[in-house]
Amino acid sequence: MKDVSFGQYYPVSSFVHRVDPRLKILFLIAYIVAIFLANNFYALGACALVLVLTIAFSHVPVRKVFRAVRGILFLVVFTAAINVLFNASEEVYWAGPAVYWKWKIFSVTQAGIVFSAFLVIRLVLLVTFSSMLTYTTTPVALTDGLESLLTPLKWIRFPVHALALIMSLALRMIPILMDETERIRDAQKARGAAMDEGNLIKRVKAMIPVLIPLLLSAFRRADELGEAMESRCYMGGKKRTKYKKLRFTWRDLIAFLLIAALVTGVVLLRVYVGAFL
């Protein structure tokens, strides 16, 4: 019942949900590249359009999406303020004075406003698109996708299989341990432990009666898990086969075309239109 707080996967079925997780991870990377290549507002507009399409076809409610932005609101405001206040460039972008206000080293200029608006949009696009990945992909699918993408690293003897197994076990155990933490916290609270009171040192001290039992239990679980895995013939990654194979579908093609168009578009805009317009 409580494992839902882990991760932010939004469990509905949609076009975006069903795109291959490997592609989604690659798309996120491509999107980040596109955002950083974009050096004018047309290009950013194209990025925003792709984001809007993604949200529209994901069935994730818009207010959920905005919640991700709310988490970085402080960062956004802070970045914007710094960029507005410290940009002394006197470039002119529209009719009107280049400098609106000046006091000591602080100033508000046209360039400052444009530049900080640009940064804020980039930041918001970046965070929103990343959170779309976690909203629409289960942690398990993400792990599978990562493992598959990392497979070429086997050639340089990188333990891809072990890494994937660790991730998969972690995904399995995290909700269990979170449940357990809550149980032990409740038990100690019932014995009068004050968990959320006092200064930092007091709080850290209050964690001990939770942390020690939790650690002991985690070790015990690891032990038993090891035995169970051995009993099921686990002997490392050597002879192992993999049951689940990811397959590309027509959805992936459409999504691919969209992202490819975006990256190409951004590059073209960069070459033919130039910075800040």
Partner: peptide, 11 residues
């Protein structure tokens, strides 16, 4: 309150 498997709270 004694929880299920209360020995898990010993520390």
């Amino acid at each position: 309150m004694v929880f299920q498997y209360p020995e898990a709270q010993l520390f």
